[in-house]
Design a binder for these strands. Structure first.
Lengths: 225, 225
DNA sequence: CTCATGGTTCGTTTATGATCGAACTATGAA
DNA sequence: TTCATAGTTCGATCATAAACGAACCATGAG
């Protein structure tokens, strides 16, 4: 009837609680099997199967058979961005599913939020950058200052290549465990991967937890205090 | 049950066809009355009222009473971004509501896509920039080259201020009338408003059409050919 | 081969929510 | 005041789709 892409279809696909749970679980970036997703969503495996079929049909998730398992991931980066944007919108309006954050202390301390650092350490990083005048946050619009650019470059990140990317450089992302902001955007991603490079942190294989070594955490707190 | 913002709620809100139609109509940036939105969505005014109430409750639309009319706009920039992202996702998957683009020739030629230029002229602009090596588009990741930066600066746009914004600088946005890419992102916005400043184009009050003057179109085609 | 486990398909039940008619309130015009 | 238009509320109807039990196919282990 009207012009335009069928926004309603993807909306309704994401709009079902079971599917939303599955997609949220897949935001970790890990590949999950159909049964894992079923328990994540709290439905039987039959229902999960039908949901996944629908998501697959419009290319929101990407299946991959491996033996008798079928692993699912988000189809591409764009799907992740849309989900991230929707989560931001929901969080900023206080629409959280439950008031309790992650129970696992490790998750509460440091975890990945899609692809950047969240949890207490993520909030620490963000607050430190703002407090020292490396970032400015004026009503949600986050930008990097001169001194911030210097700091980041010295830390071994090539800002120029980030700038040209498709993604915003800086983005405040509301943390739904801490209810505080942390740093997303391409800079957030770059920082996290730099932490991995430096051996400061590694990603837990079984969850979204990010585990800092003792030395890593000390250095982290020194640089960004 | 699970951690995280209630992505399902906004999903289902956007997921209803009637509401999706209304929101799409509001993407023009204009304030529309309840009855206008009802006819846009193809439902009676009662149903529209109940839909708008729901959208209002979670702060997706912003009402404003004026006499006996009630005008609605999108609540903020963030809502627009989410919708834009979802439209991109849908369009890239070929999920268009109808195969026919806008019937109005003016709309087909040039119109606003939220806040940047779309339609044939938008596609012309994008293609020109890419063909002359001012933009590079590698699998959806769009970035501006050295010569592109020079061109844009000479055209009177302050790139530095755009770079620090929350939004990606360059973004390819699929045009659902032409099924071709045009330029979104903060650069796309800046270009369109520069066209207005220069008197090349004006926005039609009654629709999303962008109307170029004769001289404006000639200059436009010279610069970006 | 048999058995166990992972996933799919089918059919039925059930609940949610979109829709609209009818009756209502509110603003403005004559 | 009366009339008209804009919007809301309520209630009843109806359709869609989520959920699951049961039976099915596919892969791997012994």
């Amino acid at each position: 009837m009207k012009e335009g892409p069928d926004i309603a279809l993807i909306g309704s696909l994401i709009g079902d609680p079971a599917r939303a749970n599955m997609l949220t679980a897949l935001m970790s970036g890990k590949a999950l099997t159909a049964t894992e997703l079923a328990t994540e969503a709290g439905v039987t495996i039959q229902t999960a199967s039908s949901h996944l079929k629908k998501l697959e049909a419009v290319n929101i998730v990407q299946p991959q058979k491996q033996g008798r398992h079928k692993y699912f991931t988000l189809a591409d980066e764009e799907v992740g961005s849309v989900l991230e944007a929707m989560m931001g919108l929901a969080a900023r309006r206080g629409l959280v599913r439950t008031r309790t954050g992650p129970k696992d202390p490790a998750l509460r301390k440091a975890r990945t939020c899609y692809d950047h650092l969240a949890g207490e350490m993520g909030v620490f990083l963000y607050d430190g950058l703002v407090a020292n005048g490396h970032l400015t946050d004026t009503s949600g619009e986050v930008s990097i200052t001169q001194t911030g650019q210097r700091l980041v470059s010295e830390f071994g990140i090539n800002l120029a290549s980030l700038n040209s990317s498709n993604r915003p450089l800086c983005k405040s992302c509301l943390d739904w465990s801490a209810r505080r902001s942390h740093l997303g955007g391409s800079l957030g991603v770059a920082l996290l991967s730099r932490f991995h490079e430096l051996g400061w942190a590694r990603r837990d294989k079984a969850s979204r937890a990010v585990i800092f070594s003792e030395n890593g955490e000390r250095s982290f707190r020194e640089v960004f205090a």
